[in-house]
Nucleic acid binder design. Structure first.
Lengths: 203, 203
DNA sequence: TCAGTTAGGGTACTTGCCGTACCGTAATGG
DNA sequence: CCATTACGGTACGGCAAGTACCCTAACTGA
């Protein structure tokens, strides 16, 4: 016996079923966003039912986060030899991510997690620490080249550009940030910040 | 005839009814947050029914935004004579706002508006432009005192501190940001940024 | 003053989705 | 080969958004 999709009647269990559920949830997430991620649809798409889902995840949000994790792409740290170009490239990558449908998903998940540190932590790999690493890498090279002050190797300083960019998405409803904005952030904020430190400590 | 709350049986219309609805919605928002803002409860609390609400606002989100606007407090720009203290005070005000129940409401509303520029614009008065003004004011005074470079009078530069603080709330689930973080933002990012500009234009 | 019009009030209903419960049965492991 | 576990099917209960009607109070202007 096979169903209409040709799925064998063989009953899946354990990892195989979990894989099918996550895959279906990820597909729903990309097609319809988090708002369209309903338990019924995921179950139907995975060829199973809600029991199997609730046995693995406590609710819709947890499933959404788990499904998102397999969609998130990792950042590729550039190495152009110029801090300005490296920073712009990182911002452009971030801009592409945030302005893609996946960016909307991530924003919805962050909002749904809304202060639940436990769940937020599972997203932080993609939105927090995983973001800081490439910036510190790029900035470290710039420091070695003398393009930036060593004091700038500070997580908050290093990631300030991408935080400012994210603000564009949160406050403006911009579907995508124009390249001007990225250039502005780099030239008006980021480069002056990482270069011009240690000027006059006490004013 | 009066109902159990003592409301006169006189049927309210127009502005009076709208006021009652907004007032009820604002109360629900403060007590139960945006998640607890249901049309039925607002209608019951206002002593009316959902018809009157839907005749004025297209949906729950629009009502939530309208109700939020009457809860939002305006920023009081400090003038301590020191940019560092002014900036810290502005950050502390922002920190109080974001960490209050109202902050959670604002975050939920921003998320629910999620890219709808039209609705987002109605919140922008509270989260965007209204934020920039006091920072530019404070920074303008600092420039006059010689505490900051004139080039720093740029909206993106002037508001960078508060944007970084907001990031703490979005990424970490922190209910409130420790004062250390505010000091860190001011000393490690903001002051170096607004002071140390115009160092070496071409590197 | 008195129709005629507008806008509230009351209520019931449809739809959608989360989360739960129950039961029969296939898969698995000893 | 049987006991146990986990999946499939299905049916609910609950809640909230949004819609549809109908009745009636409040306003409007001739």
């Amino acid at each position: 016996m096979t169903d209409s999709a040709g799925r064998p009647a063989r009953r899946r269990r354990g990892a195989a079923l979990e894989e099918a559920i996550l895959s279906a949830a990820a597909a729903e997430l990309t097609e319809s966003g988090y708002a369209g991620l309903t338990m019924d649809r995921v179950a139907a798409r995975a060829g199973t039912n809600k029991n199997a889902i609730y046995r693995r995840w406590p609710g819709r949000l947890a499933l959404g986060i788990a499904a998102y994790r397999r969609l998130a792409t990792t950042v590729q740290p550039p190495d152009t030899g110029s801090l300005r170009e490296d920073a712009l490239e990182l911002l452009r990558q971030a801009n592409r991510t945030w302005s893609s449908p996946l960016g909307a998903v991530l924003r919805d998940l962050l909002a749904a997690a809304g202060g639940t540190a436990e769940l937020l932590g599972q997203l932080q790999d993609q939105s927090g620490d995983a973001v800081a690493a490439p910036w510190l890498l790029v900035l470290g090279r710039a420091v070695a080249r003398g393009e930036a002050a060593p004091e700038a190797l500070h997580p908050r300083v290093a990631t300030s550009a991408v935080v400012l960019l994210r603000n564009e998405f949160v406050v403006r409803g911009a579907p995508t940030a124009p390249d001007d904005v990225l250039v502005d952030i780099v030239d008006e904020v980021y480069l002056p910040l990482v270069r011009g430190r240690g000027l006059a400590p006490d004013v």
